[in-house]
Amino acid sequence: LANLVQFPCKYALWGCERILAHTEKADHQVNCEFRLYSCPFPGVSCNWMGLMNAAVPHLIDQHRIITTQQGEDTVFFASDIFRPGIFDWVMIQCCFGFNFMVVLHKRDRYGDQKFFAVVQLIGTHQQAQNFVYKLELHCPRQSLTWKAIPRSLQEGIKTAILGRECLMFNNSVAKLFAKNGNLSMNVKISRC
């Protein structure tokens, strides 16, 4: 009987109109854009849960340290990057009608500092496939570039950092590109 019957998504109340066979229900619901998401702001223990389209208003209201910038091309100027400890630098870049969270994460294990930079679309996995982001570090004689499809809200950025699917560099490379302890990173988002 279950094979004959189709079921609504459990997030139908929030707007999901999918009708599913019982075999496809679980997979769909994990990535449903109408499911509740936890706060995407990295490095804080925030208990917020909400719909995808409520995530950016939450970030701007509750995490005021976030800087928001319009435009496809920006220069992300991370200040004081060598300060000891584990830190995140976070900015929201708005373009093409979407919000992209740009994150620089610094790990510090007994002085061994590593940096990870990644961009996450505050949107679905499907929407993220339409974009490419490029991160660039420049100094007079060198440059370092990373180009990839942005993470989605479903995928999160922690998996990108743990999976090394991001721009990564260590302390000595950071010293090449930093000036007075600050790091300028070009961020360019484009449609693919």
């Binding site: 340290i65 091309d73 920006t74 400890g85």
Partner: peptide, 24 residues
């Protein structure tokens, strides 16, 4: 096509919450 100079955005660090560090 006029080239727009990208705007520089100063981003301040925020400390990673201690209770999350063990999950790293």
């Amino acid at each position: 096509r006029t080239y727009r100079i990208p705007k520089e955005v100063r981003v301040e660090p925020h400390k990673f919450a201690a209770e999350l560090i063990h999950r790293l």
